[in-house]
Amino acid sequence: MLPTLLEHTSTRVNAEIDPVLHIWGWEIAVYLFLGGLVAGLLILSSLLLWRPRDTAPARILQLAPLVALVLLSLGMGTLFLDLAYKLHVFRFYLAFRPTSPMSWGAWILVLIYPVAALSGLLALGPELQGKLLKKLPLVGVLAWAQRQRQVLLGATLAGGVGLGIYTGLLLGTLTARIQWNTAVLGPLFLTSGLSSGAAFLLLFKLDEADRHRLVRWDMLALAVEGVLIASMVLGFANAGAAGQLAADALLGGAWTASFWSLVVVMGIAVPLVLESIEIKKHLPLVAVTPALVLLGGLALRAVLLAAGQDSGFRLLP
């Protein structure tokens, strides 16, 4: 504030970065959410389809990997919207930098497409496969994919896990933003992606056994998410002054209301209670529960993204 210090501060104040980071808007929140959702869909569908079935599973499960690809493309579309130099997108693929999560992400995204497309082909029931083969010359591809079934599903699973963790690490490695300076973000976004994926599938008609399994997995993922959030907040609160600042934002500070009300209460606690009632009382599932889980997943990304951009070491006294 003192004029004599102006020169010093002017070297520190970078437009767009100080006092608050402003480069990431809603596009990135939606992208991170869709990325997590896609990761969850890929992981869950690979697990559910791991063993070949006698009867074709529900339509949405047959289509899950392909739907995941559509959602991923949507997400990349929002990402592309965010790029300032849209034509330079190819540059991501001229190099691979093992220390950069953005580089990892760019390559994971590219590798997921063929793998998920092939497992998508495998996942289709005989009826849909027949329709598709009539239109496209894919007989050879399908035969090859069927021989490599376990490998392909395993690769899809791995791709899903990689994608889920990467969406969290992307923020987690930006340690200059103290709200993101935690290793928990990777696993947190992965489990949140799993619960979003399960919730998405639960919005559609499913076999009783699959539905039951998904509800239980969703409950597990939500519970783990709660534990990870608790450890994240506790970690902040017990870290140094920077961590204290990050904890304050969530414990009484600017982001307290949206974080606890939208993410924890609406997105985790209430769906958990609804799902446990559902299992205990054998009630029919209603769309409200998965809808709340999905909204909570979106809120988690949006709140952490915004809170992180609002936080920085400059705020330290």
Partner: peptide
């Protein structure tokens, strides 16, 4: 408009 639309310098990921 929202700050996101103001002079953007490349984003992420």
């Amino acid at each position: 408009a929202a700050p996101a639309s103001a002079a953007k310098k490349g984003g992420g990921c």
